[in-house]
Design a protein around this nucleic acid. Structure first.
Length: 501
RNA sequence: GGUCACGUGGCCGAGUGGCUAGGCACAGCUCUGCAAAAGCUUGUACGGCGGUUCGAAUCCGUCCGUGACCUCCA
């Protein structure tokens, strides 16, 4: 599909500069996109879904505009500690102990779960999905480079990044807007327990204590890599020392992403990322959903309605659509009312889509105003997405187009008022935005062909009754079916049915 | 305590110095044997108080409220 240059001017809000900037890839048309993936120590929750669905659209839209995107999203399978960045137990090791499994069994189990969830929500798999444990040699190498450059020190088999020393040459905290003095002033004393010179320092290699079940040999003895290191290593390895876009949840901005920058600059002397993007959090009743607060639910619970906070289940595409009705950088509050509204809205949109695909073009009296209106709305779809992936506005435009489409379908407006070219453009772009850009799928209520056949019989019987003006029987069929949650829909010329939720 | 966001009509939620966001709900209408479904149409909102401006919901100040980050979480 040919897209006008004027419709390809994408702007991205860059968290680093706090400004919207025109997106210019380093090696057009290639684009490098790195997104921090999950730590696979427990089931994915609905907040994870929001972040990855957000970047799914980023990936899809960049591709749609003609970029060749290499999308790297890691799996963290070692190094992420439970309580304190450098003092807790490894999350995966802990889970392995609790479930009495090998750590790699935990990793596999929750990686599978994560993939299932991503599939359920129709997120395209990344081009490369590297794991931390498969890049230990690369990580040890990066630790060596940082040590060689003097930005790290070894103590008792662990290696720490020297934040204060680094800060003398490179500003630390630019991404999250922090000053090192404030950070120092705010840090708790660690009661002299730590090997670290400063509480701000973070482990890039951690010694494995006796009995620690995740350990690899290194120049500093048996140990495992620090949490932040993998992302620096794998983004550098697959996307280069400086690449285009780095994304992740807002909660990773500090310290995780700040540390990534420090590590990359400390190792290779280059700013790693051109555009930083951060997706915002999901809230429930006003407070952040998070594993630690325990107010999350899993995607499956949401889909099945299997949670005390949920009045019913909401289909994956309803949820996806719901998420797109707000901007990725805003918090989004979950509620039954809002989800139900999204469910109806989404069904309205897919209904219009079906209508559009069932209209056959007929020439008529062209109306230049209508022609211009339709083309302008189509252009707006691009312009809204170009404005920092504003899915909410793009969806609003889709609804405006829906009204026009439905009017064509009902022949309240003749489709011949617009040219055939414009009609074809409308059809192509409307479909493309829904399926390719937003990544929505049409979910059918029933794939049950037996039920379809039964309903065909009942609808036929009712139709005969109506033709005989036997309203009592016709209404009885309708009402009895309604009791069984099946709704009869009399449309023009034909009758269909739907399952009431 | 420090830093930073946000407060939009009944609900959700965009956006912006002057011109209708959109969805849901409500209402009216069309269709229909009646109804439902579906579709169409309408609704003039931006926390309080000051200020800047010809004009502010949009900029500035201030107050109130909510939230996030500052140890883990997407």
């Amino acid at each position: 599909m040919e897209i006008k240059e004027a419709l390809k001017q994408l702007s991205i809000y860059n968290t680093l500069t706090r400004k919207k900037e025109l997106f210019k890839p380093i090696n057009y048309p290639n684009v490098g996109l790195y997104v921090c993936g999950p730590t696979v120590y427990s089931e994915a929750h609905i907040g994870n879904v929001r972040t990855f669905v957000t970047f799914d659209v980023v990936f899809r839209y960049l591709t749609f505009l003609g970029h060749k995107v290499r999308y790297v999203r890691n799996i963290t399978d070692v190094g992420h500690l439970v309580d304190d960045i450098d003092e807790g137990e490894d999350k995966i090791a802990k889970r392995a102990r609790l479930e009495q499994l090998e750590p790699m069994e935990i990793v596999q189990k929750y990686t599978n779960n994560f993939h299932d969830v991503m599939l359920l929500f129709n997120a395209i798999p990344p081009s490369i999905e590297p794991t931390a444990t498969a890049h230990l040699i690369d990580q040890i190498e990066m630790v060596n480079r940082i040590l060689k450059n003097g930005f790290a020190y070894e103590v008792n088999g662990s290696v720490y990044f020297d934040v204060e020393k680094y800060n003398k040459q490179h500003p630390y905290g630019a991404l999250s807007g922090r000053k090192i003095e404030d950070l120092i002033a705010n840090t708790r004393d660690l009661d002299g327990q730590s090997d670290k010179k400063s509480p701000l320092d973070f482990a890039i290699w951690k010694k494995a204590e006796k009995g620690h079940i995740m350990r690899w040999p290194s120049p500093w003895g048996d140990g495992f890599p620090g949490w932040h290191l993998e992302c620096s290593v794998m983004s550098t390895k697959y996307l280069g020392q400086t690449f285009d876009i780095h994304g992740g949840g807002m909660d990773l901005k500090f310290p995780h992403h700040e540390c990534e920058i420090a590590q990359s600059v400390g190792a290779d002397g280059k700013e790693p990322v051109r555009y930083w993007m951060h997706g915002n959090m999901l809230t429930f009743e006003g407070s952040k959903m998070s594993k630690s607060l325990g107010n999350t639910f899993t995607p499956l619970e949401l889909v099945n309605g299997d949670h005390e906070l949920l009045e019913q289940g909401y289909s994956p595409m309803t949820v996806r659509f719901f998420m797109f009705q707000s901007h990725y950088a805003s918090t989004l509050d979950f509620s039954n009312e809002a989800l139900k509204a999204a469910e109806k809205g989404y069904s309205r949109l897919t209904n219009s889509l079906n209508n559009l695909n069932n209209i056959s073009y007929k020439t008529g009296n062209q109306n230049p105003e209508k022609e211009e209106q339709v083309n302008k709305l189509i252009d707006s779809l691009f312009l809204e997405m170009n404005d920092d992936f504003n899915t909410a506005k793009a969806i609003a435009v889709l609804f405006e187009l829906s009204s026009i489409i439905n009017s064509f379908y009902d022949e309240k407006i003749q489709v011949g008022e617009i040219s055939e070219d414009t009609f074809n453009r409308l059809k192509t772009i409307f479909n493309a935005f829904i399926f390719d850009v937003l990544g929505l799928k049409v979910e059918s209520n029933s794939d049950n062909s037996t039920l379809d056949q039964v309903m065909e019989v009942l609808i036929g019987l009712r139709q005969s009754a109506r033709e005989n003006k036997d309203w009592a029987l016709a209404d009885r069929i309708r009402d009895e079916l309604a009791k069984a949650n099946i709704q009869i829909k009399d449309e023009k010329g034909k009758t269909t049915y739907g399952i009431i939720k």
